[in-house]
């Protein structure tokens, strides 16, 4: 069995078939992703290293990925933190995705819609 746990990256697939290959560490900022990859049950996600989000469109997933990297970059940073912009037309869907993925995107003070 190909142990994806050893890989530094993880592949996320959107409902419309786009794939995002991102750092495992960044993706683990989501509680849901973290559970998927580290649960004791050896689910298909763990073995294959691909997570298929059937409810999240590519535009939104891209935004989420951007946010993960933004968060990872400025976590514990002492320098000035720039704003993270979300286009209003995607705002609601992004928030729903955030809830599904268990990310506390809402409470981020630098968030600008």
């Amino acid at each position: 069995m190909a142990q994806a746990t050893e890989s530094e990256y993880v592949t996320l697939e959107s409902s419309d078939g786009f794939q995002f290959v991102i750092h495992r560490e960044a993706a683990m900022l989501s509680g849901t992703v973290k559970n998927m990859l580290s649960s004791s049950g050896q689910f298909t996600e763990t073995t294959e290293g691909i997570i298929h989000f059937r409810d999240i469109k590519a535009v939104i997933l891209e935004k989420v990925c951007q946010y993960w990297y933004y968060k990872a970059r400025y976590l514990n940073s002492v320098t000035e933190i720039p704003h993270f912009d979300i286009e209003p037309e995607y705002a609601l869907e992004t928030l729903m995705a955030a809830d599904f993925l268990d990310i506390f995107i809402l409470v981020h003070e630098k968030l600008r819609v």
Binding site: M36, G41, Q42, F43, T44, E45, H52, R54
Partner: peptide
């Protein structure tokens, strides 16, 4: 037999 399941699916 958890390895036959997709976590995302069940979670969703």
């Amino acid at each position: 037999k958890a390895n036959t399941l997709s976590f995302e699916e069940v979670y969703r």
